[in-house]
Write a protein that binds this DNA or RNA. Sequence first.
DNA 1: CTCTGGCACTCGGTAAACTTGAGTGCCAGG
DNA 2: CCTGGCACTCAAGTTTACCGAGTGCCAGAG
Lengths: 357, 357
Amino acid sequence: MTPPVDPAPRADTTGEDHALGDRRAAILEAVVTQYIGSAEPVGSSHVANAPGVQVSSATVRSEMVALERDGYLVQPHTSAGRIPTDKGYRFFVDHLTGPGVLGPVQRRQVAQFFDQVHGEIETVLERATGLLSELTTYAAVVVGPSHETATIRSVQLVGLSPQHALVVVVLSDGAVEKRTIDLESEAAGEHLGAAGAHLDAHLVGRTLKGPWAAPKTGSIPVDSLVVATLHALDSMGGEMESDQVFVGGPARLAESFEAVETVRSVLSILEQQLVVVTLLRDVLNRGLSVAIGTEHGYEPLSSCAVVVAPVTVDGQSIGAVGLLGPTRMDYPRTMAAVHVVGERLGERLAGGHDGGH
Amino acid sequence: MTPPVDPAPRADTTGEDHALGDRRAAILEAVVTQYIGSAEPVGSSHVANAPGVQVSSATVRSEMVALERDGYLVQPHTSAGRIPTDKGYRFFVDHLTGPGVLGPVQRRQVAQFFDQVHGEIETVLERATGLLSELTTYAAVVVGPSHETATIRSVQLVGLSPQHALVVVVLSDGAVEKRTIDLESEAAGEHLGAAGAHLDAHLVGRTLKGPWAAPKTGSIPVDSLVVATLHALDSMGGEMESDQVFVGGPARLAESFEAVETVRSVLSILEQQLVVVTLLRDVLNRGLSVAIGTEHGYEPLSSCAVVVAPVTVDGQSIGAVGLLGPTRMDYPRTMAAVHVVGERLGERLAGGHDGGH
DNA sequence: CTCTGGCACTCGGTAAACTTGAGTGCCAGG
DNA sequence: CCTGGCACTCAAGTTTACCGAGTGCCAGAG
């Protein structure tokens, strides 16, 4: 009815912050928003009354044709409403919405979590996945710090039985790794202390990467213990490379997707920790906080979006928190949740262990 | 065609090892077997030719009526084939089938696994879930040993930073637990060794259950460290009670069930480690190796069957391996797999760490 | 030149009517 | 007792028709 108040935006160039007419952007936003809510194709008439649009459905339709031509929308079939493409979602997150704000309930949930949680890093990270998946109703993934650069703080040999002893290594970042070794002679037990002390003296300060120096001590039984221990350390190096992954709320995936097949394939991706780590790392390395559909390159996850935030302590990235949901996820809320939790985790890991907020 | 070779079994009492006519049992067996294979209601004519039955479909039908009356079978609807009830499955596992035998391929898989696997208990158990879920195409659950009875073998204090130190406790069963403590004064670092040695001397041999004795050393800074450490030990006790749970192949659940809702609820059960542990323990305590449908009492798992085997070392049960699948799972194969893996795990944990088979 | 209302058209989804076939229960005869 | 035969049932598939949300296009108004 009323003529447009703003001067009609030019279709191609508007001088705005993005290469899409203002109105088109508004229409795209409305489609994305509504589709996220309803999971059903959005028709022109549902968009016509949206705030920021206010044109007739016919006009919306013609704009939609353009949006489809440019790859922001698709029609599942003729005579159906439109659905955002990955590109559409991408534009939405890049230009049309910020990280969003958490609702009061969720804010309280976060606060409560960080008040109550206690214990070792591993525990905190593990529980954090639960928090995240509850906040967002999607599956959460948290990657713990890598121990690659950590140095050895202590090496200790503890006898378990006449035949076995345990090598216990403490790293500078607080990680503890152990390995059982076989004792060749029963008498070796007496030399555990000496061998441990010897190794401790020589290895503290080094990283867990070999090759290992094995200075002689002069005592044959001690030396053989030392060799066995160095072997054990070798195998630790390999295992400490792959950082710890925690997955939370995989059950949510069953809610997020219709097709059982999709659920299955996504679940089995989550079982492969290595893939999860590289996925998150890749996304972060590309400076993104969101990877939509095929952007991350993992076929089976093409109907998923991943939202990631780094966990940084003193500017050092020591891990990442991520969320896995359908491409039509609630991006603002999810991004907000991931950012907040990532940040608070960083603070927590930097600060004390009881009350640091 | 041919009259029965055996004297016709009486319907109610046969003097056999089970309270079901031989023929009825055979029919039940055929129904269960075929239903497991096809997942579709089994009609009388499909059973008539089964080995061990060899009567006309009409006769099968009348027997089926009886089996249904007695609660071994149900019809999804009139004019459909029959499906076993939980009771039917129960009879099947109790009287009609043994643990079964693994196929050659799977046998090789198991052998290969135990040849290659190495490392700490936790790693072995974790990987075992993968093996089991691959062997059976169901979800696997392994519960590790509880540390309740383990005694302390070593207590050590390691400084991490001027403000933090790590309490590292080694238990007699090879478990290692750690806890970070805050250092009140910067100078405390110098006393870590003394406090550690003091605690080590007094605590070795005890279990992780408090209350803790805290003998004075005479040095105030050392004593305050000792107190802090005892606090840490306290919190360890709580965490070491709940034994470790490993879940493998949850993605298989998506294959096993049709309804997404079922998948979801089963998955979320698996997320609750405590529930899983008690479930397995309950079943074992009742002397069962299989719990079908509602037998275990967990509502959301009513469409599941659980197959369990204990892992024993020197006659002591130190854990359990379990499998979670649909009630119409392949019981013989599954039971075989679970038993074999449970047994081999026991041997492995009893014997050495490299070649003990 | 842009927006709008109008109009014909498309096509997925649902419902109703019909067909098919696997499966049952029952019964009379061997 | 078992069996073959027969009438009956009912889920699932197929066809047909219809509805309605949604589209593309166009001619006219601002």
